[in-house]
Design a protein around this nucleic acid. Structure first.
Lengths: 135, 135
DNA sequence: ATGAAAATAGTAACAGTTACTTTTTTCGGG
DNA sequence: CCCGAAAAAAGTAACTGTTACTATTTTCAT
């Protein structure tokens, strides 16, 4: 139920997310979409992001510290969080889905999934460069 | 620097956490420690929990949704979050630390660690029982 | 064209957490 | 054993990220 109706704002948010690979926060989405849609409200951004995530069109990344981030790439992949510049980047690596079986081995409930992210120092920061994450 | 001084509150918080294996939130710690120390303040609980975590005496679990949880067991192990009753339980399983090498394979930064938790339906909820998590 | 359902802007409220200010406690040196 | 600097405490205010509410506007099947 609750048939979905077209929304220009939602399309703009989706399009913006697809144009970026740095996993913006809701506020970053707000700031940027506002350039083309100056009167969009932050509440709309939050609602639309939640809708899109519920529809499976985007992914919500709960990194833990600070604000949630959003990713238009819904294919299975992992993320790396730099502890110095706080950037969140994609991690190209082979599947580690087998850890689900490892976890399931002697567990009496039903394991449906896992959340994993890696942290450390990104290549940019390791090279002592200035790694300002764009806004 | 900043030599640590004894604090009865901090000891009580640590002792309380060691007595529990359900990974309480700061508020749960506050509610319980207050039974023996009625005038303890929530700010103190937060500060002491952060101190203890920084000292490595407890672990902070950032589950993502809602409040952080704390665990006096600092040995390497994993956690399971029930999507129905929201309980957080320990997961006895063999090490999956090898995923660090998997992630490091073609990454140009330095990976220092990972955060992983599993989610699904716990045994209690799967059995359709009433799995109220204690307060 | 019309009207019910859905989405919006704008604002208020909320949860979890941190910061601030004053008072109390700890603890090493005299 | 007392003194005082440093640390911690209590209590409260403030902050961040997010959700909820209300009145208005937009979508879209009939």
């Amino acid at each position: 139920m609750a048939a979905l109706k077209y929304s220009r704002q939602r399309e703009m948010i989706k399009a913006f997310l697809m144009s970026r690979k740095d996993h913006p926060t809701a506020d970053m989405v707000y700031m940027n979409v506002r350039k083309q849609q100056p009167n969009i409200s932050l509440g709309t951004v939050y609602r639309d992001l939640t809708q899109l995530a519920d529809l499976g069109e985007i992914r919500r990344l709960r990194i833990g510290n600070g604000a949630d981030r959003f990713d238009a790439d819904t294919s299975p992949h992992y993320h790396f969080v730099c502890e110095r510049c706080k950037s969140v980047t994609d991690l190209k690596m082979e599947s580690i889905e087998s850890i689900l079986e490892t976890a399931d081995a002697n567990f009496d409930g039903r394991i449906e999934g896992h959340v994993t992210y890696f942290y450390g120092i990104c290549g940019c920061c390791a090279a002592e460069r200035d790694c300002v994450s764009e806004s």
